[in-house]
């Protein structure tokens, strides 16, 4: 793969990132499998998604766009905007939880609701990690490529999760 005597690339970040994405991807794949199995049970009653969930998607997508702009232009304000929108997304998710709770859907009320809480919580943890990575990239711009890739992945995961919980 590498010619004799050639110097190897010493930038492990892309591959390390790929490893992270693979393992996080498998985590959500496992949850999807659990979801698919669990929904065949007789007690499955779909819960309507909170309206704010869709607004949250818009926030998350614009955050991704802002981070992308930061990566391309290297401008700090874009990164700050991306971070702010990311935090806003988490806040929005909390509001979505409140909406569910207000409708009497708690963690243990029914299986669909349980998955909504679990998936959004596990995803939220990855959003937090992504925010941390973006903040780190704010201090060390060399890491922005990696951090933004992770951020887009986390955003994509949420779109995927929404499709799973609303369509299936």
């Amino acid at each position: 793969m590498n010619g004799n005597g050639a110097t190897l690339a010493t930038r492990p970040a892309p591959l390390g990132l790929l490893g992270v994405l693979a393992t996080v991807g498998m985590l959500f794949a496992a949850f999807t499998a659990a979801y698919l199995v669990r929904r065949t049970a007789a007690d499955w009653r779909p819960v309507a998604l909170p309206a704010i969930a869709w607004a949250n998607v818009a926030v998350l997508v614009s955050s991704g766009a802002a981070v992308e702009a930061a990566r391309r232009t290297g401008r700090g304000p874009w990164l700050l905007a991306g971070l702010g929108l990311g935090v806003a997304f988490l806040g929005g998710q909390l509001l979505a939880w409140r909406d569910l709770a207000g409708r009497g859907v708690f963690l243990a009320t029914g299986p669909h609701g349980s998955f909504l809480y679990v998936l959004s919580a596990v995803h939220g943890a990855h959003v937090l990690a992504g925010l941390g990575a973006l903040a780190y990239a704010g201090a060390r711009p060399a890491a922005l490529g990696t951090a933004s890739a992770f951020w887009h992945f986390v955003g994509g995961i949420w779109l995927y999760v929404l499709v799973v919980v609303s369509v299936l």
């Binding site: 005597g5 190897l8 010493t10 591959l15």
Partner: peptide
């Protein structure tokens, strides 16, 4: 990452 990216010269 170490095995794939940090091999020395010639270590295919």
């Amino acid at each position: 990452t170490t095995i794939v990216n940090c091999r020395t010269r010639g270590m295919s």
